[in-house]
C-alpha cells in the first residue's frame, strides 16, 4: 500500500520536472557570464587557432569551446565549456577567466549520473578560483578531495589542469 502511494507521488512529481536541454545549457552559460562580469549585454567570439597550435594543446582540450567575452570592442574575459567523466557518465562544466587569464568562476553545468554529484558543491569549486596557467593542480596537495566522489574529483582536477595548460599555450603564442 505504502509503495503504491509512494510511486504515485513521485510519478506526479516527475511530470513537473525537466532536465537541461542544449538550449538550457546555453542559457546557463549566459547567466554565469552575466553574473561574473555584471553585464546585461555582451558578445561571444570564438578563438581560432592554427592546426599547428592545436597540435600543441592537450588532447582533451577543444579550442572550439574556448571563447572571448566582449562588451562592444572591449575584451573583458574568456570562458571554456568542457566535458569530463565521473564513474559511468560525462558531466559538463564551465570555466570563466577574467582579462588577465585568472579563473573567476567554475561551475558544473550538467551532472548526469547519481554517483559523485558532490563536486557540484559551490564550496568545493571555490578552490579553483584565482588559479592561472602558472598553477599546476595536484589532487590532495592543492586540490582538496571529497570522500565518496574521488573519481569525479580527480577527473575534474585533470580537466581543469588541461584547461589551464591550454590557456598557457595560447597565451605564449599570443592568441590570447
Amino acid at each position: 500500500m505504502i509503495i503504491q502511494k509512494f510511486t504515485v507521488v513521485f510519478l506526479a512529481f516527475l511530470l513537473f520536472n525537466n532536465i537541461p536541454s542544449s538550449k538550457k545549457i546555453d542559457k546557463l552559460i549566459n547567466e554565469e557570464i552575466k553574473n561574473v562580469f555584471q553585464l546585461e549585454i555582451f558578445q561571444k567570439e570564438n578563438i581560432e587557432a592554427s592546426e599547428e597550435l592545436k597540435s600543441m594543446l592537450p588532447k582533451n582540450f577543444d579550442v572550439s569551446n574556448f571563447n572571448k567575452v566582449k562588451n562592444g570592442d572591449a575584451n573583458i574575459g574568456f570562458y571554456y565549456v568542457g566535458k569530463a567523466f565521473g564513474k559511468v557518465d560525462y558531466f559538463d562544466f564551465i570555466v570563466i577567466f577574467d582579462n588577465d587569464l585568472i579563473v573567476e568562476k567554475i561551475k558544473i553545468l550538467v551532472y548526469r549520473e547519481d554517483h559523485g554529484g558532490e563536486i557540484r558543491s559551490k564550496r568545493w569549486l571555490k578552490q579553483f578560483i584565482g588559479k592561472t596557467f602558472e598553477n599546476e593542480l595536484i589532487y590532495s596537495k592543492n586540490v582538496v578531495g571529497i570522500s565518496g566522489a574521488t573519481l569525479s574529483v580527480k577527473s575534474m582536477t585533470f580537466a581543469i589542469n588541461n584547461v589551464l595548460k591550454s590557456v598557457g599555450v595560447l597565451h605564449k603564442n599570443k592568441i590570447i
Binding site: 509503495i3 509512494f6 510511486t7 513521485f10 558544473i108 551532472y111 547519481d114 554529484g117 558532490e118 557540484r120 558543491s121 559551490k122 564550496r123 568545493w124 565518496g148
Partner: peptide
C-alpha cells in the same frame, strides 16, 4: 526497492 537520491550543492548535502 524504489527511492530518491540527489545532491543539494548549495548546502553541500547528499
Amino acid at each position: 526497492g524504489i527511492g530518491v537520491s540527489g545532491n543539494l550543492s548549495e548546502a553541500s548535502l547528499k
